[in-house]
């Protein structure tokens, strides 16, 4: 599953097509690392709690293919259990869109 995503992303990048997802990729990755990575990288509290609730394969947000942008938007603004909400000063709508595009780059799009 994960390997397939990587192959798919690599294919998009190598083909040189500037799809929205591919164009957003570098920015999205960096923004995600800064705003979300502190909890959603390997040792983070987000990863830990998602592993408990959904299992290891769903724990790392970055390697999931099932996330949808509206859900990401909702959780970022409403929070979820141990995840606090983000204000639009810390995370402007435009940044959230870039992060949502990054997290859905290989998964279903609305």
């Amino acid at each position: 599953m994960r390997a397939m995503n990587l192959v798919a992303v690599a294919a998009v990048l190598m083909s040189g097509l500037s799809t929205a997802a591919a164009a957003a990729e570098p920015d999205g990755k960096a923004l995600y690392a800064r705003r979300c990575g502190i909890c959603h990288f390997a040792d983070g509290g987000g990863t830990w709690m998602l592993e408990r609730r959904l299992g290891k394969s769903q724990a790392l947000l970055e390697s999931r293919a099932d996330l949808q942008a509206p859900y990401i938007r909702l959780i970022a603004r409403r929070g979820l259990n141990g995840m606090p909400r983000f204000t639009r000063v810390e995370l402007p709508d435009s940044d959230l869109e870039i992060i949502a595009a990054y997290l859905t780059r290989s998964g279903p799009r609305p």
Binding site: G44, W48, M49, N81, G82
Partner: peptide, 16 residues
């Protein structure tokens, strides 16, 4: 810096 210690809020479960 880290935010690791925020994990403590999950001790009792639910909206910690």
């Amino acid at each position: 810096p880290t935010v690791g210690p925020l994990k403590v809020a999950n001790w009792y479960g639910g909206r910690g």
